[in-house]
Each structure stands twice: as C-alpha cells, then as structure tokens.
Design a protein around this nucleic acid. Sequence first.
DNA 1: ATGGTAGTAGAACTA
Length: 268
Amino acid sequence: MPLSIATWNINSVRLRLPLVESFLDDYAPDVLCLQETKCPDDKFPFDALRKKGYEAIEVNGQKGYHGVATLSRRPLQLVEKREYCAKGDCRHLSVIVDGGNKRILLHNFYVPAGGDEPDPDINPKFRHKLDFLEEMQGVHAEDDRADAAVLVGDLNIAPLETDVWSHKQLLKVVSHTPVETETLEKLRVGNGWADLMRTAIPPEDKLYTWWSYRARDWNASDRGRRLDHIWGSPSLVPHLTGMDVLRHARGWERPSDHVPVIARFDFS
DNA sequence: ATGGTAGTAGAACTA
C-alpha cells in the first residue's frame, strides 16, 4: 500500500488557498502538513479542503502568526498539540496516520526562524530558537504509540554545506550557523531519526526548499536554502520510494517562499 | 554594508 506525505510552509493558507487546491489536484498526496497558516482555527478553510477529498483535518492555528495544519485523505487520530517554550505559539501538531498495515506517528513542526542576529545573549528570538530545539529532544523516532514515525516541517535550519547556496557566506547567517546546524544534527541523530530527504537525494547534491522573496530573480540568483525537512524512523528507509522537491512551485503566481516536498512510501 | 519582499494588519510586528 502506497503512502505519500507532503510538507509545505504556505505563508498564509487563506491567501494561497487556490494554490493549495491546485497542488492537491495535481499531486494528491495522502497527507499534507502545512506551516505558517497564519489562520485562527475558526477561520481555517475546512470546507474547501474537504471538498478536495481531505476529510481528516487537524489544525493548531493562531491569529496572524505561525500555525500548523495536517490534512489527510486517510483517517487521522490527533495525538497532541504541544506548546513549546510556554509562549502560547502554535508550532506543533502530531497525529497518527492510518497507513493500511502501518500506523505512522506524524509530527508537523514550525521551528522559530530566530531573527537576524545569531547571538542568544543579545537576540531573544535566537535564544527562543535554541530553546525550542532543546525542547524537541523528547521527540523520538521510536514511539510505542505507532509502528513508525515521521517528522516534517519548516525547521528553519539548513544543516549541510550543500543545503545552502554558499556555505562560507552563510556561516554567520541565522539558519546555517554552526550552533544551529550542529544542534539540529545532534537532535536528529540522538533521537534516532533518518534524514529521508538526504536518503533519497545524495548529500553531495545542492538541495533547496526556500528562496527569499527579496531576490530580484530567485531562479537566476538561486540563493536557496533547505529549511524544510522530512525525517523518519530508520525502519521506513527500505519503504521510501520517492522524494519530490517541487522547485518549480516557487515560480507559481503569488507563491509561498517555500516549496512543497513530498515523500512516497510503499508498505506492500 | 545595506536593503531588498511578503503577510497580517490597519501600526508594527514576523519572516
């Protein structure tokens, strides 16, 4: 039985609802995890997305900022909406996806961006980002509640040298500083996660999921970063059949600055 | 070195 899981920082689900709808029409992932929905739960476009066949929807949203949502064509069971750093931010949602013969625990994360200055002593946003990562230590790839686990989302860190357009030029830029990349990799490995995007796409290859809105020509300058991630239990690796990073989505009309990533599994 | 754009708002924040 195939199972596909997509992740996409949508940067306002209401403004970009037509983009989400056409993405679901064209790619039809079984599950879609959205971040930066910027939408209170009572204003979430449930009806429009259910019409597309995504009957199971779980949201954790707030007004104006942040917010995550997980939609599925298969039954979902809500596990947790965990509040990190006691700030009242809506940045996490976990569900169990019925994958046929496998039950998958699926975490959807939106990690704080961290501001501009990569010094936790003078920048509270960077401190918050590091604290958030510290709290993620408890999120393990092995979990008794399911057969396997997947963690997706905008983690706002590009860990590998090939995850940014220029390793040297970004060493002091938030998202690629050593404290961030080392903390994220330790967190991933220490909690038993496999980097499924890099399992499918060789770590030597440049790979980006985000291009700034501020570039004159995002495609020509190609100053991208891999900020969005799909991790999984090591037991899932033999079942991974594909990984699509929809670079061309950055060129859609009124695009998000992030593009969708889709992981495909087969459990037959 | 700076400023560049986008979204939610309806000023100033976040990214």
